[in-house]
Every structure is written in C-alpha cells, then in structure tokens.
C-alpha cells in the first residue's frame, strides 16, 4: 500500500467486489467442491453419493494404470522441460551475440508463442500423418517405422516434440530478456578477465541467468503438466485408448467421459497439491531472485 493511500471506506470495497465475487463463484466454490467430492463415491446414474473417506485416494494409488500415467507424466515433464529450456537457451545466447538480424531472429523464434496447443497438435498430426507425413517419411528414411496413435512410444515422442516446439518461444523470450539485462559493465569486466567465450559463458553469464532459469523451470513444469492438454488431446484424436496421456488428461477422461466423479476429483486434488508445492517452491526462489538483482 502507498504511504498516502486514500481513506475512503466504501470505494475500495466496490472496486474489489467484481473480482472477489467472480473468484468466489468460479474458483473457491469449484475448488472446494473438488476437494469435497474426492471423499465421496458418485452413483454412476446420478442417484446421490456415499461418503467413502480416503477410499478414492487409496484406490488411485493402488491403481496400476494411474501409476503408469503418473510415470509417463513424470518422464514427459522432464523431457519437455529439459529440451525446451536447453534449445531456447542456446538460441537466446546466439541471438544475443549476433548484431545483424537480431530482431528478425527474435520474431521468427517467438511467434509460435501465439499458436494454441491444440493447433500445435494439429500441425503435429499433419507432420506425422501415417501415409504422407513429412516426419513419418523422415523417420522411415532412417528405418524407424513411425506409427502415431498406435505405437505408445511413437505417440509419446510426437507429444514431446510438439510440446517442446510450442514451449521454446516462451523460454527464448525470457532467456533473451535475461541476457539483455546483464549490465554492460559486467560483460566488459568479464571480457577483460576471461579470454575464452565459453569460459565467460559458464563463469559469468550462466550464473547471472540462473534466477531466470529457476523461474522458467517452474513455468515449464507447470506447462508440461497442464497446458499440454490440447496437444495431447489432438494427437490422440480424442481417443486415449492405449496411448500415453498426462495426469490432467486423465482427470478429464475419467471425470467427463468415464463419469467417475469421485476418482476424478481425487486426481484433481492430488494435482492441486502438486501445483501448490511447485508454487511454494517458486516463491522461495522469487525471494532469492530479489536478492540476486
């Protein structure tokens, strides 16, 4: 709050009201409802529900399919986060180096930010079309018989590739802006102290980028967990079958398609706890981020 804030009583309440009402109705209520129904077993025909305590949770954790999806989500998240961060960092460092065309490169490398995940998935479908997709042919050229939507690993690979493609721009923008905010004097001092460009990168640039990197790590994990929904849904063409899927996608499939409200809610709550942990972690880091700069 500002030192000399206005002291009118009713106005701030009026100003806050719309936001608070919307949040109460469309956030707190549903979130509470999700937690609540995770302790109930819903009758499949909609005739009431029974309190079952933690049964939905224990069922989930004992369910081998759920564990399989969780494991896939973990591997998927690690791969997407690592590759999109690494490629974006490489491109950002190069884009920061070049003098000519820097703006053009920036535009070319960031426009995918605005592509919706399902549309990215759709482009993936075209690229991996069974009979004529260019990437399917490319894979075939190397003797890899790529079958999207049938072979588990192939579908997973396509998901990772499309998700990385979609996420590089955000990471690139943040890394580039992080690089450009390194003070000129620090770069010049490093130039005098260290003759090797690689040495300078690892000794000076990389540590100074670390706060941005930590921050992006969280953003990317969140992205891989939640925002890839559209990509997954499009790539499996809405038919999960034996295809790989992420935890969020399973919440949707079980709850909306399978009508297992209790189980789906329990999954939601597990995800909530996960995000909560990530956010707490992120705020610890943001605190540190302030100390860095």
């Amino acid at each position: 709050m500002k030192r000399a804030g206005f002291s009118t009583k009713w106005m701030p309440i009026m100003l806050l009201m719309p936001q608070l009402v919307i949040i109460a109705i469309f956030f707190y209520w549903p979130a509470w409802h999700a937690i609540q129904s995770s302790f109930y077993l819903q009758d499949p025909f909609g005739f009431g529900s029974t309190f079952v305590g933690l049964e939905n949770y224990t069922d989930l954790l004992g369910n081998s399919e759920y564990r399989r999806v969780a494991l896939f989500t973990l591997v998927f998240t690690v791969l997407v986060t690592f590759f999109s961060l690494a490629i974006a960092l490489l491109l950002a460092v190069k884009a920061d180096n070049v003098l000519r065309g820097a703006r053009t490169y920036r535009t070319l490398l960031m426009w995918v930010y605005a592509v919706a995940p399902p549309v990215a998935g759709f482009i993936g479908l075209i690229m991996f079309d069974q009979s004529w997709g260019p990437l399917t042919r490319l894979a075939g050229f190397f003797g890899w018989d790529f079958v999207l939507g049938v072979n588990f690993n192939d579908t997973a690979a396509a998901m990772v590739l499309v998700s990385v493609w979609k996420q590089i721009p955000v990471n690139f923008i943040f890394f580039l802006s992080g690089l450009q905010s390194i003070p000129r004097s620090v770069r010049e001092a490093a130039l005098i102290d260290n003759g090797s460009a690689t040495g300078r990168f690892w000794d000076v640039t990389f540590p100074l980028l670390a706060p941005t990197g930590f921050f992006l790590l969280i953003i990317n994990i969140t992205y891989a967990l939640f925002d890839t929904f559209g990509i997954v849904d499009t790539l499996v063409k809405g038919e999960p079958g034996n295809n790989p899927m992420t935890l969020v996608y399973k919440v949707y499939v079980d709850g909306f398609r399978g009508n297992d409200l209790g189980g789906s809610s329990a999954q939601s709550v597990i995800l909530m706890v996960l995000v909560l942990a990530l956010t707490v972690f992120q705020f610890r880091l943001i605190d540190r981020r302030i100390h860095y700069t």
Partner: peptide
C-alpha cells in the same frame, strides 16, 4: 483480499475443471 485473490494463481483451471463446469 490480496491473498484471497492471489491464491487463485495456485490452481489452474485444468485441475478444477469438472466442478467449474457444474457451477
């Protein structure tokens, strides 16, 4: 008020999608 509003950052729509739909 800040914390009440701020907490919404913690939970993306995707994890509370079903109850939101019901509302």
């Amino acid at each position: 008020a800040f914390w009440v509003i701020f907490t919404t950052l913690l939970l993306p729509l995707e994890v509370r999608i079903l109850p939101s739909y019901e509302v």
